[in-house]
Amino acid sequence: METIFTPYQSLGGGALIGLATIFLMWTLGRIMGATGVLAGFLYPSSMSDWSWRALLLLGMLASPLLYQTVMGEFPPIQVPIGKSMLIIGGLIVGVGVTLGGGCTSGHGICGIARLSPRSIVATITFMIFTAITVYIIRHIIGA
């Protein structure tokens, strides 16, 4: 499935992700990692630690409506695989990010921006494994 190269939207979107990252650190002193926010919401350590996560997730939930109001439509979501693979992928991602303590946002943006060695190692590791997985699925299995 071909997709259109979108350097400006992607750069602008990335800058907004960076802005959200520094805004959360500036106001609450927290790392803007999707895994950390969600895991602490699902498995809270205390009530006061739960509420800000719930509000942040609510903001994420509201974002497509805002996007739609400005752009006139939802962003494209093209899924080239079936439901069963989505479930397998989702389970593996859930286990992986919890063990690894972060994902693309927590390790890839926040951690690297702090020059954390753990995050640099984590990001290199998942990028390599994602590339290998995509190569195997697309070019060896040929799906």
């Binding site: 989505l86 397998i88 593996i92 286990v95 992986g96 690894g100 693309t104 998942f126 994602t130 997985t133």
Partner: peptide
């Protein structure tokens, strides 16, 4: 964990964020 995440991300194309 990061290796597993990469495998799941490669399969599904979705990451948590």
């Amino acid at each position: 964990g990061s290796a597993l995440f990469g495998i799941g991300w490669g399969i599904s194309g979705f990451c948590p964020g």
